[in-house]
């Protein structure tokens, strides 16, 4: 059976309630398109979210959907996937939902390598509660709950995902539609937990938080689109590249300071070591360009597959047909 689907098949009739100009609209549309590219039937797809602006997304899908409670989407998606491994599962979280109240579930889902796709909409602010700083807001960030600036350092989602031994990390920007679609498709095709960070703009409470990097004028210089097997090039005319500098990375202009195209690194998303992946993911658009695209995509045993294999193995060696058979195989006596 090879039915094909269009983006419209994943959309439902609900009117979308996000603010005009919110980055979520673009992400929703790209998700519909990515799902059509993947071709998994809507009824074989589940979208599970927590609480927050982004977490309303399941209501706009024509798939199975569950809008749950704050922070717990990863745990609920974990149970869902283990219980019904045939389903393709997407988890939608924001930076507050996924990394503050849900931080524990996030790292453990990644560590277990549950085969789900976690979309982390990062706008570095709490939108639904009207503008408090989030765990990804930069130090000194002024918000309603930090009127004098925060006195704490933020999480960098990639660093957290790697710390939890993640095997798939991709990143995109809400306005980079093609990149988002490419990363979402790769995330779904990856077996295991895929973490996709999407830099998303909240027009109301944190407008322009990513604009230093994402504005059209800057984007070519301040971002680099990584593709497996391709040279790490960026700039308006791909005139710049990343080279190795000791244990670190360095941005150079090809043809200057003695650097040639041969010096430019080739991206290997599939290498098991996450050393270089982490360095790439930590680039922040200042000294080094912010990386978008699939940064890490490494095969590893998934919880769900291993569990099914273990059950099959146990059952084939000492399985019982029923509870009664299992009990009768143990120590019993008879009363007549």
């Amino acid at each position: 059976m090879c039915q094909s689907y269009t983006a419209a098949d994943y959309k439902n009739g609900q009117s979308v309630r996000w603010c005009p100009g919110c980055g979520d609209h673009a992400i929703l549309n790209t998700l519909h398109k990515a799902m059509a590219t993947l071709g998994v039937a809507p009824h074989r797809t589940a979208v599970i979210s927590g609480i927050g602006c982004s977490s309303r997304l399941p209501y706009y899908m024509n798939t199975y959907g569950f809008h749950t409670i704050h922070g717990r989407a990863a745990a609920i998606a974990t149970g869902f996937k283990i219980a019904n491994p045939e389903m393709t599962v997407w988890q939608i979280s924001g930076d507050g939902d996924g990394l503050a109240i849900g931080g524990n579930h996030f790292i453990h889902a990644v560590r277990r390598n549950i085969d789900i796709n976690i979309l982390l909409f990062n706008n570095k602010i709490y939108g639904l509660t009207k503008g408090q700083y989030s765990p990804t807001s930069p130090r000194g960030f002024v918000s309603k709950s930090s009127p004098y600036g925060t006195v704490e350092d933020p999480f960098i989602p990639a660093e957290l995902a790697f710390g939890a031994r993640g095997n798939f990390f991709g990143r995109s920007i809400d306005v980079e539609l093609a990149t988002s679609q490419e990363v979402l498709v790769a995330a779904a095709r990856h077996k295991g937990t895929s973490v996709v960070e999407i830099l998303q703009n909240c027009v109301i409470f944190n407008n322009g938080i990513h604009s230093e990097i994402t504005d059209r004028a800057n984007r070519a210089e301040r971002t680099i689109h990584l593709r497996h097997g391709e040279k790490m090039l960026f700039g308006a005319n791909n005139e710049r590249g990343l080279v190795q500098d000791g244990f670190l990375l360095k941005a150079v202009t090809i043809g200057e300071d003695g650097y040639t195209m041969d010096d430019v690194l080739v991206h290997d998303a599939h290498t098991p070591s996450n050393f270089l992946h982490q360095q790439l993911a930590m680039m922040d658009g200042r000294e080094l360009p912010l990386a978008i695209g699939v940064i890490r995509d490494v095969d590893a045993p998934t919880y769900t597959d291993t569990l099914e294999e273990q059950i099959a193995h146990v059952r084939s060696h000492k399985g019982h047909a029923s509870l009664r058979d299992m009990i009768l195989a143990g120590s019993t006596w008879e009363v007549k």
């Binding site: 599970i48 749950t68 409670i69 149970g79 869902f80 996937k81 219980a83 019904n84 389903m87």
Partner: peptide, 9 residues
Amino acid sequence: CSAIGAAFA
């Protein structure tokens, strides 16, 4: 929560 996910499933 995992049980709730499993129930939904």
